[in-house]
Computed example of a mutant assay.
Amino acid sequence: MPYAGGYQSQVFAAGGSPFPFTVQGLEDAAREKLPAPHFDYIAGGAGRERTVAANVDAFARWGLNYRILRDGKPGVPSYTVLDTPMAMPVLLAPAGVADLAHPEAERAAARAAADTGVVQVLSSATSTALEDVAEAAPEGRRWFQFAWPDDEKLARSLIDRAENAGYSAIVLQGDCHVAGWRTRELDSAFFPFQRAHGMGNYLSDRRFRELAVMGPRPARGAALDPAEVVAAAATWNRLYTRPALHPGDLALLRAWTDLPVIVKGVCRPDEATLLADAGADALIVSNHGGRQLDSGLAALDCLPGVVAAVGGRVPVLFDSGIRTGTDVLIALALGASAVMIGRPWLYGLAIGGQEGVTHVLRCLEAEFTGALALTGHRDPATLSPADLTPVTTPSNRRAR
């Protein structure tokens, strides 16, 4: 087995890369590339952004146990969750309004995900209609995040469209039912939905247009007139999410689709138990990347309790704070079946479109595969808490 290989060797052979390799480098490059309100919407969080910081800093409280005795066989980072094969246990997290980062938005991300064998989880609040995203990368694997609207016909329409377009799971968004207090957006007075950003799935929906009194869908790429922008924004704001969510609602959702139903935003063991009992096919531990509730617990600190509560009955995935390949490994060792990344792929999109997202994913894959081998594993499924040691004095330095 060569000492250096894969993406590292390709970078060395090419004499470098136009894209940064560190988390901070990606963020800085995106900040320089984007208008300030666009960058702040992507990077920002709720309030003083303590939850954003806690999500990232939580990983510094765990040290990986390095091993040197080995059989010499190469690591294989591929994995399967809910019958969905993945080149590595990493998915693109649902992130709305991607056209703030790049005009190709979710289509560029879909192509990058397909090229690297990564699953794309598409937000409800996309800049691009879900059918157009599927068409951009027909060979890709996709799940659809469902923000349950407060209109049953619209809800059923979105589910039917996702199923017909080849999405293979429904991710029920539970962690964004109330607007977070986002001071960066308030400072810039920039709320993208007020300008009809992030409404690709709604503006392309017959039922939504009926509710907004907008008439038939125009030709692809046609601009909205000012009155339509106002009508669309007001209708979206009124209907974006149902105010209530109960475990029994999963039965109704199951009556609408045969796809697996995954619930995102679970941080409490008691809620995890109730949702597993109600028939959820999987859970995602997430605090929406710290964008909703300030001073919240780090999502990583919630993961072990949720994993213990469900006792292996359903897979538990993880989101919020993943920045590096070693972060991926730590979350898997604490019981996650797979993880999702959000801001890093948006930073990659901002600085390089499809190639930028591909770069982010290939960096994660290279670092994760190496870390897997260096901790004595060939398969992500064999990771466990035994691979970790608590670090009593966490570093004050943020991950580069």
Rank of each mutant, 00 (worst) to 15 (best):
D258A: 15
V285K: 06
Q145R: 13
P77Y: 11
P260C: 10
A223E: 14
P304I: 15
T375N: 03
P390A: 14
L297D: 05
V261E: 00
R206I: 05
P260Y: 11
G47L: 10
G356Q: 07
L250S: 03
P192V: 05
A255Y: 02
P94D: 05
L275H: 04
D281R: 14
V90M: 05
A244I: 09
G353L: 10
S124T: 14
P138F: 11
A366V: 03
S157Y: 02
L91S: 13
E271Y: 00
G248S: 15
A234G: 04
L91V: 15
G342K: 04
T358L: 03
T369N: 07
N396W: 01
H246E: 12
A233W: 00
P218K: 07
A381I: 02
A331K: 06
M199I: 07
S395W: 07
V230D: 12
A333M: 03
A212W: 00
V213E: 14
A338L: 11
H177Q: 13
S9N: 06
F12Y: 03
G356N: 05
Q8C: 13
W181N: 14
S337F: 07
C267F: 02
S384H: 00
P37E: 08
V52A: 13
Y240L: 04
A137L: 08
T183S: 10
L158H: 03
T22L: 06
D28M: 09
I330G: 00
Y79W: 13
W256C: 13
R242V: 04
G117T: 12
E271W: 06
L253F: 13
I159W: 02
A169D: 08
W181G: 00
D258T: 15
V391F: 05
L383D: 05
G353R: 10
G200S: 12
S337H: 13
G321Y: 01
G16I: 08
L374T: 11
A232C: 11
T22R: 09
T80M: 08
D387V: 11
A109I: 12
A231S: 14
P89Q: 11
V118K: 03
P35S: 09
R142Y: 14
D205F: 01
Y167K: 03
A212N: 02
S320Q: 04
Q292M: 07
P315H: 05
G279L: 09
D249I: 06
V171H: 03
M88H: 14
P89R: 10
L253C: 04
G296Q: 10
P85S: 06
A46E: 01
A54E: 02
E106A: 04
I284M: 09
D387C: 15
S337T: 12
E365A: 15
P247Y: 06
R70W: 11
G342F: 01
P226E: 12
V314G: 01
D277N: 11
Q194S: 14
G198Y: 01
D71R: 12
L383S: 09
Q194R: 15
R107A: 12
A129N: 15
S295Y: 14
L92I: 12
P243M: 08
V11L: 15
A105S: 14
A4D: 14
A136I: 04
W181D: 13
A113P: 09
V339D: 01
D151C: 06
K73E: 13
M340D: 09
P103E: 03
A113I: 08
I42A: 08
A333Y: 02
D151M: 06
D187A: 14
D175P: 00
V230E: 15
D150I: 05
G63V: 08
I262K: 03
L283I: 10
